[in-house]
Write a protein that binds this DNA or RNA. Structure first.
Length: 322
DNA sequence: CATGCGTGGTT
DNA sequence: TAACCAAGCAT
């Protein structure tokens, strides 16, 4: 592409951003790398609205600095992350805080080595916190580039090269924020508004009137069935902290495959996840073998729980077990 | 490179 | 309203 046309695109983009960009986002009003880092991790696969309205401010109030985060117990961090999903993010945050305190590294190479910081997040921190000329490469940017160059199945390297070419190296901060805003407000998945798009003059998708870029692969969503066993004693229930990758660090109940026939069926809880639908029958055993770690309703309120387990708790309250 | 990982918004 | 998917990362 001609340098001249790229410069024209930058001007159009800059003009659009000045008028319509989301300038009210709080992480665009800080120079603190820690604040920007927290926003980037929260925003991974998570909508701006959720982060903005429910998590960003409370988290920073509770953990106002990298050192404060490092010194907090992991369980407190998990509790602050409750409901946000992808819980290894919370574990990685805590780990990074301890590894990097009192301040984050300032280069892409050192950032990308930290757990939970991939290439996109490292680029974003460099561009937004340190004003370095790196191109972010998240879902919005991928969609925009795929459409501009009509790439149905783009390769990672190919997209990165195109992103690097289009980047405004003089203004990496505004450029990256602007292209993400274009993705979420103009070049949307379902109904792109080419009339106001700064990239319209060079966009092949617009020319072809085909916006299915990159090509979506459809998958069937399986159902995962489960049996949850509740052991209770004196208005308290046995709970344990998960260790696997799924719902890592959150507190929950035991699953079982057999031996529940003689117990009391309480009800079924369901939860839809991206890759499967979860459906669990909940049984109650009031003659528990577990000896320790029974939690009362008040104690459970202090633990980090998943959506499913919150539904189970409601079922227990309804059955007057808690 | 494909898959697993949470939850809630949007259409 | 079922389906898609959002400021991705690790394996």
């Amino acid at each position: 592409m001609q340098k001249k046309s790229i410069k024209q695109i930058h001007q159009k983009l800059h003009h659009w951003y000045a008028q319509y960009g989301r300038h009210d986002l709080p992480w665009r009003h800080t120079e603190d790398p820690y604040h920007i880092y927290i926003s980037e991790i929260m925003l991974q696969q998570t909508q701006v609205k959720t982060v903005l309205e429910r998590y960003y401010f409370p988290f920073l109030e509770q953990f106002p600095s990298l050192t404060a985060l490092a010194n907090a117990p992991l369980d407190e961090v998990l509790k602050a992350w409750e409901g946000l999903g992808y819980y290894t993010r919370a574990k990685n945050l805590h780990h990074c805080a301890n590894a990097a305190k009192p301040t984050l590294p300032t280069t892409f190479d050192s950032l990308v080595q930290l757990p939970g910081i991939g290439e996109n997040t490292a680029s974003a921190i460099c561009a937004f916190a340190y004003k370095q000329p790196l191109a972010v490469m998240e879902a919005n940017v991928k969609r925009i580039l795929s459409r501009i160059f009509a790439l149905k199945t783009p390769q990672k390297v190919q997209l990165q090269q195109l992103a690097n070419q289009l980047l405004d190296k003089e203004n990496p901060y505004d450029y990256n924020q602007a292209i993400m805003d274009i993705g979420s407000m103009v070049c949307t998945v379902k109904s792109p508004d080419c009339a106001v798009c700064p990239y319209a003059s060079i966009c092949l998708a617009r020319e072809q009137n085909d916006f299915d870029y990159p090509e979506k692969k459809k998958k069937t969503v399986p159902t995962r069935e489960d049996i949850i066993m509740i052991e209770s004693q004196d208005n308290a229930v046995y709970m344990r902290q998960r260790e696997g990758k799924f719902l890592h660090g959150l507190w929950g109940f035991e699953s079982m495959k057999e031996g529940y026939e003689e117990m009391t069926y309480l009800g079924t809880v369901t939860q839809s996840y991206t890759h499967f639908t979860y459906k669990a029958k909940v049984y109650h055993d009031n003659a528990p073998k577990q000896k320790d770690r029974f939690f009362t309703k008040k104690e459970i309120a202090q633990l980090a729980l998943s959506g499913v387990d919150k539904k189970v708790i409601k079922l227990l309250e309804k059955n007057k077990i808690l």
